[in-house]
Design a protein around this nucleic acid. Structure first.
Length: 506
RNA sequence: GCCCCCAUCGUCCAGUGGCCUAGGACACCGGCCUUUCACGCCGGCGACACGGGUUCGAAUCCCGUUGGGGGUACCA
């Protein structure tokens, strides 16, 4: 095992970004937004996206969560060039499989004196601050920096096991954040921090930069929550460069928080944070990507709707807005609706099928006839849907047997003075239309002439009863088209059923 | 406590010293279209947190205040 493998030294101008989640819980929107921005940045610059899994916390990590992560990435079309599942020159890409690499780096860091053993307990540190009249909330005080061999031996004899801390430089630490500009942390405000536990295991603080260095990452785009650990990482990078593990300090870009209601960071508890809930409701991956992109970024001054490709064309991390963004389900839904309208009818029909199945409108196996009906019905609902999950409710009546159609109570109200007469007349008109000519184009003028013009009933009241009879709803897809799809006998049966029912009730 | 980040309509995004009487989107309110509901179209409401500077000129630069948020672990 070597820490400087192959050194397939990439061209220095190649952009290499990474997405490195911990597999805990269900993918949430903030995390996915980070993945998306990294991906878009890489694609825009013709670079590479590395997908690494930070599964060093056996207690919280799960294989199920790992698979959900893969599912999420694939659903959204965020592909990666190196990493889990696809491999690459800097593997393995799961931290749980990289223990030997870390031990080797740790050994080098020790040899070079960048990290030193620390025996102080938290209580002792606080005690020393108190004794010296300093703020006890100050962090580690550097007490063990220059322990003599005798002192170390004495601690060891006491049975203490040291942690290892990085020697922080006594200078200001400045870096230029891609989204925030220049940021400086004053010298002396960041204590030497622990990189190796007393049991010899490395911590995230070490492992994350080490992997980024080894994987030759050039741009680190991550959540704002780790902005304040950046100076620590820069100090570590400098040490890694000195021992030949890293080539450079990458550029950093800290993405704004994704907030929930109020001023709280979207938590995993919040339902709107769960990516898969959006999918279940019928968000298109295109709509989701579009909306997610708007959380901190804008495609242009006056366009909000764009494709993945359009995003790639323009995205650059330096254009990201630094303020936190709140999720707005209504806007997300509206954007999704736009994407639904942009789909071809055939594509939309195809995507509707699983939702119709999920809604119980279609069974597990879909017949050719049903599929044809879905395709034919799609144009009737394309501008009436915001979410694919609305399909069962909108189209259910077309797949229901006439006898099973339930007319909703709502659809029985406000039918005018003479709904029975209207239905009766409609049936007569329908009977006069030949089977092969049972089309919306033929039905509409015939029914309009008979009921609106001849009977003198306003269109609204003329067609209301028919709508209720045909769809069972007060609100439905266009009436005549629906009748055409249902066919003559089915339409007639439904019209008769409601006529009979209303006549009986009168 | 100390350190760091953020601050334009209710929300998201645009704006990087004059093109801003601040633009677009969602939401909301009117209207048109119309067989319902949508779509579409037209119109309306609505913001530069506050105070000082710098400048001929500031939403844009600087300082401060206030208000949010994060960090300060042998978590990630």
């Amino acid at each position: 095992m070597t820490t400087t493998p192959a050194q397939t030294s990439a061209p220095t101008d190649e952009v290499r970004v990474r997405f490195c989640p911990s597999p805990t819980g269900t993918p949430h929107v903030g995390m996915v937004r980070t993945a998306l921005f990294n991906w878009a940045h890489a694609r825009h610059h013709g670079g590479k996206l590395v997908f690494r899994i930070e599964d060093t916390d056996a207690a919280r990590d799960s294989e199920e969560s790992y698979h959900q992560l893969l599912d999420a990435m694939r659903w959204l079309g965020i592909d990666w060039d190196e990493g889990v599942e696809v491999g690459g020159p800097h593997g393995p890409y799961r931290q749980s499989e990289r223990a030997d690499i870390y031990q080797e780096v740790i050994a080098k860091l020790k040899d070079a004196g960048h990290i030193y053993e620390s025996y102080s307990t938290a209580e002792e540190i606080v005690e020393r601050h108190r004794a010296a009249g300093r703020d006890p909330q100050l962090g580690y005080d550097g007490y063990d920096r220059d322990l003599t061999e005798e002192q170390k031996a004495a601690f060891l004899a006491e049975g203490r096991h040291p942690t290892w801390r990085l020697r922080m430089p006594d200078t200001d630490l400045t870096f230029t954040d891609l989204v925030r500009g220049e940021i400086t942390f004053k010298a002396g405000t960041i204590p030497d921090f622990v990189v190796v536990r007393a049991n010899g295991q490395p911590l995230y603080t070490l492992v994350n930069p080490v992997d980024d260095a080894l994987m030759r990452i050039t741009h680190v785009l991550r959540g704002e929550d780790i902005l304040s650990s950046t100076p620590r990482q820069i100090a570590l990078y400098r040490a890694l460069i000195e021992i030949g593990v890293a080539e450079r300090v990458p550029e950093f870009g800290h993405l704004p928080y994704v907030m929930g209601e109020g001023n709280k960071k979207l938590s995993k508890r919040d339902p709107e944070s769960n990516l898969f809930l959006y999918r279940e409701q019928g968000f298109l991956p295109e709509g989701m990507v579009n909306y997610l992109a708007l959380l901190g970024w804008g495609y242009s001054a006056d366009e909000d709707i764009f494709s993945r490709e359009q995003m790639v064309e323009r995205f650059d991390a330096s254009d990201v807005n630094p303020n936190p963004a709140r999720v707005d389900i209504k806007k997300a839904t509206a954007i999704n609706a736009d994407h639904i309208r942009r789909l071809t009818e055939a594509d939309l029909a195809e995507r509707l099928v699983p939702y119709l199945q999920q809604g119980g409108v279609l069974g597990e196996t879909v017949t050719e006839e049903q599929r044809t009906l879905v395709v034919a019905a799609t144009p009737l609902v394309q501008t009436r849907m915001n979410l694919l999950g609305e399909a069962p409710d909108l189209l259910g009546f077309l797949f229901t047997a006439d006898a099973d159609l339930e007319v909703q109570p709502d659809a029985l109200k406000k039918l005018g003075d003479d709904p029975v007469g209207v239905l009766e007349r409609a049936i007569q008109e329908i009977d006069a239309v030949p089977e092969e000519d049972f089309t919306a184009a033929a039905l509409e003028p015939a029914l309009r002439a008979a009921i609106v013009e001849d009977m003198g009933i306003k269109p609204r009241l003329a067609f209301g009863p028919l709508r209720s009879a045909i769809s069972g709803r007060r609100i439905s897809p266009p009436l005549f088209e629906s009748m055409e799809l249902l066919g003559k006998s089915s339409s007639r049966a439904r019209l008769s059923a409601l006529r009979d029912r209303l006549a009986a009730e009168a």
